[in-house]
Design a protein around this nucleic acid. Structure first.
Lengths: 350, 350
DNA sequence: TTTATGTGTGGAACCGGTTCCATATTTCCT
DNA sequence: AGGAAATATGGAACCGGTTCCACACATAAA
């Protein structure tokens, strides 16, 4: 046996498969077979080898395994950020299915550190260096070039909340439009509101746009879609909501309800209204979209639309694994649409 | 040149360093040198090689690089969960420093899927299979055996919010005790409250215990630590807070302030009080600990203690990288203590 | 007994890079 | 001009596994 380093009187071998083989008096191949439950090892030898492996607490080096198996058992997860309840839910969904199948999650956050362009290069590297067997990408402001590169990568990609079927990429979407329409249905049908304002998010946001479309569609269905729709532009932030209130206040008497494209803006408006002594849900309804964690606990509890982000995570991870494990089976890119859920609380007047 | 697969009329080489070498008419070694900016390549050759690499869009396979360099450029991050504002902040901090240094983050969540024991085995595997160069572990209910195994691993580990210096492991802590004491100082010194109740979290929680200690210490300093301290046991949840209120209500007239060991419980109590028409901040003060995202937006805005989780993430990542890049330099395990910040809002009566 | 069949094992090639060492070529110095 | 030093490159070994192939040996069928 080779000379071996000693430490605190304990013998420390550099544990490799060859060392184990030597200790067991067999070849590397046989150890490998014992390890991977191959049928071509005798029970006797296998037991002896496994005993030695246990005794020396040997664990195969994942880097070597990955290299020869051409598989990392890792899936990349790209998220815009980690703040807010949203992304945590996605991670939870993804991790749950990946961990059940013994896969690991390699995380990249777009808003951490430098600019987004840099972050984008980073996740592209991650994919092109073959650090992962597949990837789940949530990048709301992604550009065509990047999507192209993604589609050229030979590993399965699932895109979240954006439809790139045309690029041959699977996507998992949330049906913002009908979620939004259902909210308006509720305001009109249950409460009989006719004068409803809409507060948009930033212009670049597809989500905001889809929610607006749902708003319009529902109004149309109820023959309430007149020319002077009350629409305000904002930016999805709390502060933005407060500012919108200043614009709103003159037209307040004409209004019965305000539908904000997300909860944060709704909260901003509600805070301002409370300062003015306006009773939300009574004098006027204010509703949001997202079902943020706190939306149940504010005063009054916010009526909103829940986005199934946990399911988004789960489904997309399942999808990626499906593709990874059936690489040969050619299937058209899939677009999975998940439904939202109307969460009725107090702020709509219920 | 070897026969080459065709696809859609486009030539697809299996791009490896050998292929590139062949195309450039040099050896693998030279390509490798050009790639890694070694000084021992002539400018001319280097340029030619890099041009070919660019043209064919070659990217070295990370698995092979990792194997021969014995380095994965990946750091493991273990978190208890992803819900709540907390963990998102840690991730942000970690990712920010890791991404700046071109490292990747391999994430494991303890509460995803099966039981925690399973999850613990998973992150131990991650480390023992050498998937990562170092790891940041946040596992509040970790057992000694696991810590032992961690300390035996040859890679740097930083433990979050638990002190395992004795095991030779670095740790990054938050000073719960003095944060809590400062809160009580505020209640006593600014508001003159004398009768303050404390609501504990689950018994197993170190955090809860330390916050309680801080509470006691401050009371002692102010000569307010009498025998019949009002202490309630709960569980860190919203529901738990509501239940505590039922216990509290008989003793309500004796109380001036309630200090909850976290924000969620404070919110539960506040909700119940509002139902009874009790004016928080006026009739009685209710304060929390954590500075959850929503704590500024509830009614009244919650006075609480902010935990610097973003900094915890940042510092621990820096620490890990430091150790990774100076493996030979033996240094004693470090315990870094981060300070909390008192966030004064309305619920204390301010 | 001979031939086919099957089982258990070792050796070697391979995965795709890095790095050490030897060697060829050029440059510099005396 | 001759030899030393510096520069540029190729070849081979190596990282730590997996897997194909050949072969030895045992057993079953002809």
């Amino acid at each position: 046996m080779e000379p071996v380093p000693y430490f605190l009187g304990v013998m420390f071998l550099k544990l490799t498969i060859s060392q184990i083989a030597k200790l067991a008096g067999v070849s590397k191949s046989t150890v490998s077979r014992a390890l991977n439950g191959s049928e071509y090892v005798s029970e006797k030898t296998k037991r002896r080898i496994l005993e030695i492996i246990r005794k020396y607490d040997y664990v195969p080096d994942s880097k070597a395994v990955s290299l020869s198996k051409k598989k990392t058992f890792t899936v990349g997860l790209v998220l815009p950020s980690t703040s807010g309840p949203f992304y945590g839910e996605v991670i939870r969904g993804v991790e749950e299915v990946l961990s059940a199948k013994k896969y690991f999650t390699l995380l990249t956050i777009l808003d951490s550190g430098q600019d987004v362009k840099q972050a984008r290069k980073r996740y592209l590297s991650m994919i092109r260096e073959k650090r992962v067997d597949g990837a789940i990408v949530f990048d709301p402001t992604v550009d065509k070039t990047t999507v192209h590169k993604l589609s050229e990568s030979k590993i399965p990609i699932v895109f979240l909340l954006k439809d790139f079927q045309d690029f041959g990429i699977d996507s998992v979407m949330v049906d913002n439009l009908s979620g939004s329409a259902r909210m308006v249905d509720h305001l009109v049908e249950v409460h009989g509101y006719k004068r409803i304002a809409f507060v948009k998010g930033p212009e670049v946001s597809d989500d905001s746009e889809q929610r607006f479309q749902g708003f319009v569609e529902s109004l149309k269905r109820h023959n309430l879609c007149c020319d002077d729709l009350l629409v305000f532009n904002s930016d999805f932030t709390f502060e933005g909501g407060r500012k919108v209130f200043q614009e709103l206040r003159k037209k307040l008497n004409k209004l019965e309800a305000i539908f904000c494209a997300n909860d944060e803006m709704a909260l901003g408006i509600i805070e301002e209204m409370k300062k003015e002594g306006i009773q939300i849900g009574k004098d006027i309804a204010v509703v949001g979209f997202d079902d943020a964690f706190w939306s149940a606990y504010i005063d009054p509890p916010l009526t909103t639309v829940h986005q199934p982000m946990y399911e988004v995570g789960k489904i997309s991870a399942q999808r990626v694994l499906e593709r990874i494990n059936n690489p040969d089976v050619f299937k058209d890119p899939v677009k999975i649409m998940l439904q939202t859920q109307l969460v009725v609380r107090k702020s709509c007047g219920c």
